[in-house]
Structures are given as structure tokens and as C-alpha cells.
Design a protein around this nucleic acid. Sequence first.
RNA 1: GGCGGGGUCGCCUAGUGGCCGAUGGCAUGCGCCUUGAAAGCGCACAACGGGAGACCGUUCGUGGGUUCGAAUCCCACCCCCGCCGCCA
Length: 434
Amino acid sequence: MVDRRGPGYARGMLDLTLLRDDPEAVRASQRARREDPDLVDQVLAADARRRAAIVAFEAVRGEQKTLGRQVAGAQGEQKAALLARTKDLAVQVKATESEQVVATAEMTALMEQLSNVTEPGVPAGGEDDYVVLETVGEPAAFDFAPRDHLEIGERLGAIDTARGAKVSGARFYYLTGVGAQLQLAMLNLAMTQALEAGFIPVVPPVLVKPEAMAGTGFLAQAAENVYHLPEEDLYLVGTSEVPLAAFHMDEVIDAGRLPLRYAGWSTCFRKEAGSYGKDTRGILRVHQFDKIEMFSYVDPADAPAEHLRLLEWEKAMLAKVELPYRVIDVAAGDLGGSAARKYDCEAWVPTQGRYRELTSTSNCTTFQSRRLRVRMRDAEGTRPLATLNGTLATTRWIVAILENHQQADGSVVVPVALRPFMGGREVLEPVSSS
RNA sequence: GGCGGGGUCGCCUAGUGGCCGAUGGCAUGCGCCUUGAAAGCGCACAACGGGAGACCGUUCGUGGGUUCGAAUCCCACCCCCGCCGCCA
């Protein structure tokens, strides 16, 4: 049997047309990412083998079908003669078919290693080669020694990492009392903003099939950070981007419905492999957290503009919680495999004396939609669309909120926009320890 | 978890081994008719890949098997519906 998804599936994995027409653009992108540019030529070679195999298969298959029709109408000796010929053909069909399947599998395997092509203007280099686009607000000057978020959280009865470790292990925590309240208030504020902007609110599944995980690009370089349940072959999502992208898997969306925007509320799970010893204190880097995620399906031509809109919504949310932050244009080598460009908003964390990532918005162009077979249809036909995502609020924000709004007595001023979501409360006061 | 029913072109549906890529209806598009609309009539109408095109190939839940040939027969799995059991 031919791969039932057919050669069309393979083609959908990435923009083969771009690869064939302008392989140098893809090589350049690979180099900028510090990934293997020779992969491009390997894919092209595999593609040529695959196409030749398909041609060979289709030729014998066509002949087999034609003869088959003649067999149906033949009688006696004539039929016997036709059967002899067609038996021989059957062997050839099986042989060329398996060649075709193997060639397609080889090309698919190679293509899955290829990252998205970066957008023009993305800074070259690695993790430290980002470009600061703007800095908003001033880090507060404290006339006392600021406490870190865990100390503040413990005094408020808001964060309990000791019991988190007791029950679940390192990098787990309990949010209690005003801590739990603060998270719910923040997520509700974020969801309210998203609703006002026209997003469709979604509470998605957080366990997904391999297809959804692979389709969004999380089983490539990021695979080591993904929890897997082998017995059910399901993955725990690290972001609701995954179920939101797979929401329209295998669908064709009328162009008139675009842009289509969803706001997902979900718990997120990350193994944080390779970060041993990094950010071990408090809840800055944890295995489980909650997040409101914006997700857009748009016409590819509109993707860069939508990317900036997502960034504006993130900035609006950061303004509401009154945090000083900066916006960076992430360098090519630090992009995920599915992103063509990524902007991060990083908030000032006083006790660390540096900016830490609170939001991240990626333009994935057609990378995810090709893999998940999400397409748009307009007068010009049916083709892949672009997907983009961006953070609107996460548990990590609590770190920055507590530290930036703390007062000498250990209390924390609640940002004005959050107060309606916390029963009008203006200040969080320390409680006696339990 | 057990038993029963079912998954076919946007929706519903026919099809039990070859002239089946697949019947019919609805919906949709174009045209005729009409002052306009409806009705009526005619034509078109699944997706994907390759090709300038004629055309060729793939796909009837998924994967495998039998056969010269599978929507149709066999096996496994998935999903949906109903009933029973168990349980947060």
C-alpha cells in the first residue's frame, strides 16, 4: 500500500516550492540558526529520489488498472493470458510501491529536521545576540533591601515550595491564599482583555496525541522538555499553543473568517531538562504553571502585522500590572524550530538585577499549518495559512509583580487593574507563619 | 471494562470482489426563464499530488493481509452512538 497520506502529505511538511526555487534562502536561514545548511541539499536529493519512485510506481499502477478492466470483460483463453500478464505486473507494483514508501519516509524524516525559514531582519547569532527594541518604565529604586519573590510569597502565605517539593518534588509549588487569588485575578484580567480584543476564549485539553505535538514542532529540538505518557502515547502540553494549533487540524478555513483568534487558558507542563541548578529558587522555573495564550490563524501576507498586534496586546497587559520591561528581538539561533521570528517581553526582577522573560510571541508562518494540514481558501485557491502565538499572562508574572510592588514592611501593593479581580484589595499583607 | 450498532465526496445516503472515484437527494456555483425573487429547467460540483495541457496517480475511519484485481473478504487498532458494570 502506498503511504495513505500520499506525496501531498510529504509536500505539506514545509514549503517545498521555496526549497526547490530558492534553496539558498533556506541554507542561509539554517546558517543563521547555527543549524546544518547541508540538510537542504539532502532534502532536495531525497525529494528527487521520491519523485522518481512515484513516477515509476504510477506507470506500472496505471498499466495494472487498465489490464484489470480488460480481465473483467475477457473470457477463456484470452482471460488466462491477461491474468498471466497482470500477475507479473502485480510483482512490479509491489516493488515500486515499497520503493516509493521508503523514499517518502526518508524525505519526511529529513524534512522534519529542517527548521522554519527565518523572517528577514531577524538578528543573527545565539542566545546573547538579541536586539533590544525598546525599554518601557523605570526599575523602581528601593530605599530598603528588596526581598526576593519567594521570601515575600512565604511571608504573604502565597507560595509554598517546601510542601510542593514534599508532595511532587523539585520545581513544584503550591499557590495558597493570596497567591492563588493573585494568579486567578491575573489570568482573569488577561482573559478579559483578550475577550475585549475579540479573541475566542478556550479551555483546551492538555494531553494531546503525538500528531499534535509533532505538528506544532515540539518533538524536534524541544522534545527533551516534553512529558510523555507511554502507556497511552499522549503528551502533556507545555503551552496551549499545541491544542489551539491542532484545533483546526485537517480543516480548510474560509478566508473570510480570518483572522481567527483564540485565547487559551491552560496548565502547562515542562520537564526543564538541561536547566539543572538554574533558577532553582522559588517559582521562576517550574514543571507546572498556568498560562493565558493568544493564538492567531491569519493570511500569510498579514502575519508580520499580526505578530506586532500580538506584541501590543502583551505590552498592554504588562502595563496593567505596572511592570518595567524591555522588548527584545530574539536572535535566529535562539528561535524555536517552528518560529520565523520571536519577540520576548522581559520584566525587571529587582533581586536579580536583570530582565527575565514574561512573554514570548512567535510568527510560525506556514510551518505549523503545513504539518497539521490547516489551510485557508479564497479566490486564489486553497493553501496553508500562517499561525502565530503570544503569551498574555503566566504564573511567572507573580515573581515580577511581588518583587516590583513590594514595600519595606513586606507587604505588596496590588496593581490597580488587578484590584477588581481581587475583591477590591489594594495591599497584600504578611501573615503569621503556619 | 462487557455487549450491540455504526464510520462512504460540505450534510444525508446507495453500493457485498472487476465497466466503482464510487448512486441518489440536500446544499453550493453558473446559465436560461422572471420587473426582481422564488419555483422550474440545463450544466457544474470531494480532496490531494504530478503535468502547460490532454491526462495520470492516491485517498471509501487507520494500519496490515488475501487476490491478477478490494469501498466490498480477513485481522488488528481508533473514533462515534446505545445499553450494562465500575468510579472520581
